[in-house]
Amino acid sequence: MISRTIFTDLLIMAFLVALQIFVLNKITLFGIYIPVIYPAFVMFYPFFRNKFQFLALSFLLGFIIDTFLHSGGNNAFATTLIAYFRTLIFRTSTDTSTDFFSFQSLQWSQFLLFLFSSIFLHQLFVQYIEFFKFTRIFEILLNISITSLISFIFIIIYALIFKIKQKV
């Protein structure tokens, strides 16, 4: 297992930001849906690390994405919010009642449910702030669902390539 320091966290963030901005934002599926991978940092951050450092890094990640996309804080808000509620999302989606959290102990179905729940909530917060109008509620929900599904596939590929479930 790789020992994670603030330096390695910043390198992972830089990699995810570069991947998001320079590769994935150039990919539009069906003309409007862009896969999102940068929340993987929040989802796969070790549970035993400093919570305040984690929240600060999550905010910084969202802020950097907002800076590149000129989105006015939507991503910083959503990324920080899923970071804050990550333990609750993990407990709810995995039915874990202990204080010890580990991806290695999860079944794949629990791991996938945690990932999809986190991605869906992130997209819900981002798009709720950006596009919400009662007249477009079904269009927004469809957009959230499709973007979440596409992002879920990309994050699963990322997790498999870097063997996240075995390392974190």
Rank of each mutant, 00 (worst) to 15 (best):
A159R: 03
H70K: 08
K26G: 08
I37G: 05
W108T: 15
F116R: 09
P46Y: 07
N74I: 01
F7Q: 09
Y38F: 15
R49G: 06
S105T: 14
I6M: 09
I119K: 00
F63D: 01
K133I: 11
E139N: 11
T135M: 11
R49K: 15
S97R: 11
F162G: 01
I164A: 10
F101G: 03
F120D: 06
G72E: 03
S151Y: 04
R136T: 12
L113P: 05
M13Q: 04
A76H: 01
L10S: 03
F125I: 14
K165H: 14
I155C: 06
G72I: 01
Y128H: 09
P39L: 00
Y84G: 05
A78D: 01
F85Q: 04
I119F: 05
M43D: 00
N75W: 00
L88Y: 12
T94Y: 04
F152M: 10
N75M: 03
F162L: 15
T8E: 07
A56D: 04
F162V: 03
V17Q: 00
K163A: 12
I82D: 01
I129S: 05
A14R: 14
Q107H: 13
F68E: 00
I155Q: 05
F100W: 10
F138T: 11
F134T: 12
Q104I: 15
F152D: 04
S117A: 12
K163R: 14
T135H: 12
L88R: 11
A159F: 05
K51V: 15
T79C: 08
M1V: 10
I21M: 06
D9N: 14
F22Y: 15
V126Y: 00
L142F: 13
S105V: 12
K167I: 15
A14T: 15
L81W: 03
D95G: 09
F85S: 10
V42L: 00
R49Q: 15
I155G: 00
I164N: 08
L121T: 08
L106C: 09
N25P: 04
F63I: 12
G72F: 08
F138R: 14
I34S: 07
Q53W: 07
A40Y: 01
V17D: 01
L112F: 14
S117R: 01
K167P: 03
Q127D: 12
K167C: 06
A83G: 14
L61T: 00
F30T: 08
A83E: 01
L149H: 09
L81Y: 03
S97M: 10
Q123T: 04
I155F: 05
I6W: 13
R136N: 11
L113E: 09
F138K: 14
N143A: 08
Q20V: 01
T28G: 07
I2D: 05
H70P: 00
T80W: 04
I2Y: 12
F63N: 02
I137S: 13
S148P: 05
T98E: 14
A83V: 10
S105W: 08
S93D: 12
M1T: 11
I34N: 07
A14I: 14
V23I: 15
I82H: 01
I37E: 08
D95W: 11
I37F: 09
L124G: 03
L121S: 08
L142M: 11
L57Y: 02
S151Q: 05
K133W: 09
A78S: 15
F125Y: 13
I155R: 00
F101C: 06
Y128R: 02
